[in-house]
């Protein structure tokens, strides 16, 4: 009797295992091919010299040496053409440091407004999210025009700040990266706004009402209730923001061009990998560089999550 029961149980258990594994199998296979196989091949490739057509030629650590020499040269102040990877890396770190905090904060503020019971709430939900539905190529193009010397931004700034001298944002190496960062913030804040809005709607009303009874004003309620309650979501958004910002490609490609604009001011690591792979036809070097980029993304997101709590669980 007992053995019969146990074999029945065994059967059901096996059936469940088979069912569970087959449900996830398609996802796992796609993931293995396009994720892990591709990564392993990229690793393999980083030890070879290749031109896409002929035989692959083993060169040991030479590709990595090229990247490290580039970094050392750049560190000693070589111009950007001699140290493209260093330039891209420096730019992308500055860019990330500007974009991620501001876009996260702005997204929270937008969500706070969209969460208010005010007239035209529907309008805010759409208008705040609208930039996020816009392709970054178009976003970049719109802003190239806005940022032109006789464009709207200079026009507006000249009216606000007396004696303001128009800046040639796109063609000035001092402002190009800043312009790209502003565009990125405009384009992505709306996307993260929705995440925060959803998290805010999950905060119990009673907490706010209790705080109001205690006489806490709107600003204090925002900083002492909303922000702490949103913490898991903030970690998630910052991590996603880091992943996105560190591999930024399209905005720079359109606004600065494939060569990074004047003095390489808009050059990024992703652009550099693209150029290695498709302009300079050195896929091995491109693979080595992409491993550096991967290492940077991995360590920054890992460190951030470790310090501020686990979002990916």
């Amino acid at each position: 009797m007992f053995s019969k029961f146990s074999s029945f149980y065994e059967k059901a258990r096996n059936k469940e295992i088979v069912a569970g594994l087959s449900l996830i199998s398609v996802a796992v296979i796609l993931n293995l091919i396009f994720g892990y196989f591709a990564m392993i091949f990229a690793f393999y490739l980083s030890f070879f010299k290749w031109d896409y057509i002929g035989q692959m030629q083993f060169v040991g650590l030479k590709n990595f040496e090229i990247v490290i020499r580039d970094l050392i040269r750049g560190f000693h102040g070589a111009p950007y053409l001699l140290s493209p990877f260093y330039t891209g890396l420096k730019n992308i770190l500055i860019y990330t440091a500007i974009v991620v905090p501001i876009q996260t904060f702005l997204a929270i503020v937008l969500a706070a407004f969209a969460n208010q019971k005010i007239r035209g709430q529907q309008f805010f939900k759409v208008s705040y999210f609208l930039p996020a539905t816009t392709s970054s190529v178009i976003v970049a193009l719109i802003f190239i025009w806005l940022f032109m010397k006789n464009g709207f931004i200079n026009y507006a700034l000249a009216h606000i700040i007396p004696g303001f001298q128009p800046i040639d944002w796109i063609n000035d190496r001092n402002y190009l990266l800043l312009a790209i960062a502003m565009v990125a913030i405009w384009g992505t804040s709306g996307h993260f706004m929705v995440s925060f809005l959803a998290a805010m709607q999950a905060i119990p009303r009673e907490i706010y009402e209790a705080a109001m009874l205690d006489g806490a004003g709107p600003i204090r309620r925002f900083f002492f209730i909303t922000i702490p309650m949103l913490r898991p979501m903030i970690v998630y958004v910052v991590v996603m923001g880091l992943i996105g910002a560190l591999q930024m490609f399209d905005l720079a490609w359109v606004m600065a061009g494939a060569n990074g604009g004047p003095g390489g001011a808009g050059y990024t690591v992703a652009l550099d990998i693209y150029n290695e792979a498709f302009t300079r036809i050195r896929p091995g070097v491109a693979a080595a560089k992409s491993w550096f980029l991967f290492a940077i993304i991995f360590t920054t997101t890992y460190l951030f999550q470790k310090k501020y709590g686990r979002a990916m669980r």
Partner: peptide, 14 residues
């Protein structure tokens, strides 16, 4: 966390 740029050449070959 794997950047798109890291997998593009293998995918292209594939």
């Amino acid at each position: 966390v794997v950047p798109q740029q890291a997998v593009i050449i293998p995918l292209l070959k594939l």
